[in-house]
């Protein structure tokens, strides 16, 4: 059992959990993920590390409520626990002094971009961060990400806060005004990472994305997470999760992410029926 030591509601559909997991915290590196299973009948799902604390022996995970597992998670409070956390998995982000880098976080992707931005900052880079959400009430960690960035640009799709628009617009502007950008790291929904990659391509700037494919074991055993990168099949769990965004076959990734839409809906409907009291 992995105990929740703290829970914070970042917004109505996004929760932040601090779990007791000292062994994982000791080994965690920016860009890595864990696989969790909430209960005995639960699915195994991957979540990228949002933070960790070696002294405290904790790891931080941020999850948006989208289906059975994340809703189950959302019903838990500090003091409760989940059955399994496996990790740290995947290869860590490449962290070195590149010069000036742009970190883009979209939606819940702001959580995993935070430790990467922090590591890049600590490695001596100038970090320009761009974070975006659909609307103001879905924004979180503005201060946290701002705290490890030299410059922070915030967007909302509907203009309810800060700049109106999507992250690719300021991304393009920063690339246009600053020809010294050596790397872009983008994490968020597949469609956002795809368009970030398309935006940076004409500038010839290396663009790293963290792919969020469906996984079962997360250790290279099943091949469920396979993607095509530069025409070669890769496993996100062991070869990634980070890849060159200009080489990723985005349509394949998005098609594979939709593989179980029907079943996910059915599972969630059943769960809601049985747990209506906390599914609000």
């Amino acid at each position: 059992m992995y105990r929740i030591v703290a829970k914070e509601k970042l917004c109505p559909v996004i929760d932040c959990f601090k779990f007791e997991a000292p062994a994982i915290a000791r080994k965690a590196k920016a860009g890595q993920f864990v696989v969790i299973r909430v209960d005995e009948v639960g699915e195994r799902i991957p979540l990228t590390l949002a933070d960790w604390d070696v002294e405290e022996g904790t790891i931080t995970l941020v999850a948006m409520k989208v289906g059975t597992t994340t809703y189950k998670l959302s019903c838990l409070e500090a003091g409760d626990g989940i059955l399994d956390i496996i990790g740290p998995l995947g290869l860590p982000s490449e962290i070195e002094k590149f010069g000036t880098v742009i970190c883009v976080g979209g939606g819940v992707g702001v959580a995993p971009i935070f430790p990467i931005a922090r590591a890049l900052k600590q490695a001596g880079n100038k970090v320009i961060s761009i974070m975006g959400a659909r609307s103001k009430d879905l924004l979180f960690w503005e201060e946290r990400l701002g705290g490890v960035s030299d410059e922070l640009i915030v967007t909302t799709d509907d203009g309810s806060y800060a700049r109106k628009g999507v992250v690719t617009e300021p991304l393009k502007e920063v690339l246009e005004r600053n020809r010294e950008i050596s790397r872009v790291i983008a994490i968020g929904p597949a469609i956002m990472m795809k368009f970030c990659s398309l935006t940076t391509k004409p500038f010839g700037v290396k663009t790293v994305v963290s792919l969020n494919s469906i996984m079962v074991d997360g250790t290279g055993m099943c091949g469920c997470c396979r993607v095509s990168v530069g025409g070669v099949t890769k496993f996100v769990c062991v070869d990634g999760p980070e890849f060159d965004g200009h080489e990723v076959d985005w349509d394949l990734l998005m098609s594979r992410q939709r593989m179980y839409l029907e079943e996910e809906k059915r599972s969630f409907e059943l769960w809601k029926l049985r747990h209506c009291q906390c599914s609000s």
Binding site: V41, G42, R44, V216, D217, M221, C222, C224, R266
Partner: peptide, 20 residues
């Protein structure tokens, strides 16, 4: 993957078990 879903994750009992 197929066998792991069916055996380990008990997908043959879906939707009682969450893994499809």
């Amino acid at each position: 993957e197929f066998l792991t879903r069916v055996n380990l994750m008990k997908a043959y009992l879906f939707p009682e078990y969450d893994t499809p």
